[in-house]
């Protein structure tokens, strides 16, 4: 019964992730990503990682979604369906091979009765891995700088077509000089 619960939640997460990827409207993609975060949070909760589930739900489905919607409101929804960089059949082949090799490496998941002393999250985070906390603080300050960049209203100098054309001419003449 528990397996079916994980299966339903997992399939919902994968379908939402796929829809987020193929959706042409960015707003729909962002909302599907929030759904993926919610599904992953429930799976984390069922696995026993309640604290991380709460953080993921509030940060992944809340903060990141709000940031993305804000960025989308600034740049506008570019609904063009751009062609992929590489052919799609090749991309599918790469993905299938990658998933196959990862599956070979990790399956079947052995669950031996390990005799490991288990510590609570509080002990691990604040006593054993306190360096991680300092790194997280540094990362959060980096994130604040990123938010300042996101909210910055200063217009960057746009490159005009004339300037690009001049760059191309200069580049060509350089190549000619070198050749």
């Amino acid at each position: 019964m528990e397996s079916y619960l994980y299966l339903i939640l997992g399939l919902a997460a994968i379908v939402c992730a796929y829809r987020a990827m193929i959706s042409t409207r960015l707003l729909s993609s962002i909302l599907y990503l929030a759904c993926v975060s919610a599904m992953v949070s429930v799976i984390l909760y069922l696995l026993g990682a309640q604290q991380v589930a709460v953080i993921e739900l509030s940060v992944g489905a809340g903060l990141v979604t709000v940031l993305m919607v804000y960025a989308l409101s600034v740049v506008g929804d570019d609904a063009r369906d751009l062609l992929s960089v590489i052919p799609k059949p090749l991309a599918i082949l790469i993905v299938v091979l990658s998933a196959f090799f990862v599956a070979i490496m990790v399956f079947p998941l052995v669950e031996p009765p390990l005799d490991v002393t288990s510590f609570s999250l509080t002990v691990v985070l604040w006593q054993q891995r306190v360096l991680d906390v300092w790194i997280q603080i540094a990362l959060i300050f980096s994130g604040v700088l990123g938010v300042l960049g996101l909210l910055s209203e200063r217009e960057a100098t746009p490159i005009s077509h004339t300037e690009r054309f001049a760059d191309q001419i200069v580049g060509t003449s350089h190549e000619e000089v070198h050749s």
Partner: peptide, 18 residues
Amino acid sequence: KVGNNLGLGQSLAATVIV
């Protein structure tokens, strides 16, 4: 969870979230 050390896994996952 598999390694019977869920606290460590949660700690690393929190770092990954940040």
